[in-house]
């Protein structure tokens, strides 16, 4: 554990509470930071993340809304362009599909298409993913980060630890641009050290979660846990891998990733989302463009299957990557078989 997570007064906090604390601190700092969403007030939103905030801030800053995702995203935009800093919680990221027009066609573009006359400081909080959040099926388990990482004008962040969750959310709230903030549902109860004192994590900065020199694994969100588990198992067999958590999916921290690959010469990309058109494809292509001569093995990836997320656990387990797969793919990349 590095000292930065400890600060001067470390405490254990869950990922969920870290997100709540970030909102709470920012809402105290600036009364124009407003949380909007379905059942976000007393109920605390879809997963209880915002519980207790309404009691402190009232309707003025914590507002239950109708179930109108597209209109809510547009309303957040209008509010953002006129002095507020809205945080909009989608109950599940799957439902952000209803709001894609306002997020991608409007919020992402107002700065550019209006020639810098305005900007849209909005945070779209998106609980996504499955795994230990089990059997939620096709409309409540998807990983949709690639939709938003594709759009110029949006930033996309995906914290994997409580420390990163808090620091990135505070940075997202203060960012002048629309930020899609993805929180993994299966991480809510995970715990980690979070300092008492204030800190921010810059958007666009990846983080090396484990150092090694024989291969690099890139994995965000819940996949970081699998990557770290795989790395531990590989170490037992004598393969030291570096694990990079991109934390921000757009803009991508090319420096951190390329530097690692120039050291390890091998890279394995991991994503929970289904394979086709995913962020791993983008990482791979950029690595290919910048680091081809440094690579000693083909870029490979471990990804979710290209199927809608099934309900039955026997099927569900087939869809998502697992640490064993990661171990196998890394060994392959290291010609270790």
């Amino acid at each position: 554990m590095s000292t930065r997570e400890q600060g001067t007064s470390p405490r254990k906090l869950s990922y969920l509470l870290a997100i709540r604390e970030a909102m709470q601190e920012e809402m105290r700092r600036d009364k124009n930071v407003i949380l909007l969403g379905e059942d976000v007030a007393r109920h605390g939103g879809g997963f209880g993340v915002s519980k207790e905030l309404w009691e402190e801030f009232g309707d003025a800053q914590v507002r239950n809304t109708p179930i109108s995702e597209n209109c809510l995203a547009g309303m957040a935009l209008g509010a953002a362009m006129t002095g507020c800093r809205p945080i909009l919680e989608f109950m599940f990221m799957d439902f952000s599909a209803l709001a894609i027009d306002q997020i991608c066609n409007e919020a992402a573009k107002v700065s550019y298409m209006y020639g810098g006359q305005t900007n849209a400081p909005i945070v779209f909080r998106c609980p996504q993913g499955g795994l230990s959040y089990k059997s939620a099926g096709a409309h409540h388990s998807q990983s949709l980060e690639a939709w938003y990482a594709h759009i110029p004008g949006l930033k996309v962040v995906f914290p994997a630890t409580p420390y990163d969750a808090k620091g990135l959310l505070k940075a997202a709230i203060r960012d002048p641009n629309p930020v899609v903030y993805i929180e993994h549902k299966a991480l809510y109860s995970t715990e980690g050290l979070v300092p008492e004192e204030e800190y921010l994590i810059p958007i666009g900065k990846a983080d090396i979660k484990r150092s090694g020199n024989q291969a690099t694994i890139i994995a965000a969100g819940y996949m970081l846990q699998y990557a770290l588990e795989a790395a531990q198992n590989l170490a037992i067999e004598g393969i030291e891998v570096e694990v990079i958590d991109p934390r921000t999916l757009n803009p991508m921290d090319e420096d951190c990733i390329f530097t690692s690959i120039r050291k390890t010469h091998r890279v394995v990309l991991v994503q929970e989302a289904c394979r086709s058109g995913g962020v791993a494809a983008e990482w791979g292509m950029r690595i290919n463009e910048a680091c081809f001569d440094w690579l000693d093995a083909p870029i490979t990836r471990v990804a979710g299957a290209d199927v809608p997320i099934p309900y039955a656990q026997s099927l569900e387990n087939k869809v998502w990557p697992n640490p064993t797969q990661i171990v196998d793919v890394v060994k392959n990349a290291c010609y270790f078989k």
Binding site: L77, G78, A80
Partner: peptide, 18 residues
């Protein structure tokens, strides 16, 4: 985008109220 500005006006109104 037909109708897309309407939520934005609602948001500006919300912002003024806030």
């Amino acid at each position: 985008i037909v109708a897309a500005g309407v939520p934005c006006a609602v948001g500006a109104a919300f912002s003024m109220m806030h």
